[in-house]
Amino acid sequence: MNWSLTDNLFGFARPDSTGQQIFRRAVELFAVCSAIYLAWTWALYTTRLADVVLPLGIARYIDISFLFGPKRAPTLAGALTVFAVFGFLIRNRWAYSIAFLLLITLYAARFSQGEIPHSANLAGMALLGFALGAAFFRERVFADRFAVGFSYFSLGLAYASAAWVKLGARGFGWPDGRHLWMWINEKAVDEIARNGFVVLNPIQELALSSHTVATLFLTFGILTEFAAPLVWFRKPRYVVMMLVLGLHIGIYLVMDIIFMLSMVELVLLGLPWAALIDWAINRRRVPGSVG
């Protein structure tokens, strides 16, 4: 097995291919579209806020309430849109960095109400990867390879850190099925708050009826998180990515929590798209082949 992290993550010395170019461009498009979508979603919600409950990130150092009101947050989202599109169409050294800083600011304003969600962290990391790549690499192929490798690195680090924090907080008793019962009840109350009523699905009923099943669900979850750093290496990467995707599908079914952007990114990074595209291109070039 090749244990070189630099080669496994970035593969700077490896030969390039059309499939890899298309794949990297697709990841970049995902990062740009996600950033624009998040910026506008957060900005429009911020227009209805009036008070800071919990200052997060940069809001600990500046009074983020200056963005409350009808115009300022949408103006920032508009500026972000310009910089992100500019960075995608005409590569510029700092366009993505500025877009990233604007996105951080909008995040701090939107989530000043006490909620600390992680649903957009992977998408944020993807944009940061392209920002750092453009800032530090002159040649685009190296910049983009760095960006994609950075996404794999941050993904492995994120899930592993989540697992270690759980273990640190609760020790080996963390996967106790009763803890899942607590979360199912908690999310059921959220559903009542959201829609006025709640209907539990069969998987939630199953988890609530069996301590063993609930414990197995949590055990699968934490083991998958611990295994996440294996995505830093090419060989086990796609299997582990599918396990992480399975973890998110499980979280959705059991707790009704869906991280849509993270799931899209997992599908994008979790399948060998570059090799599949190259295979399809080569197949078309073979005389007499179908398709």
Partner: peptide
């Protein structure tokens, strides 16, 4: 954000 120790579900 987007750096985090992901404390969600730790408690």
């Amino acid at each position: 954000w987007p750096f985090s120790i992901y404390p969600m579900f730790s408690q």
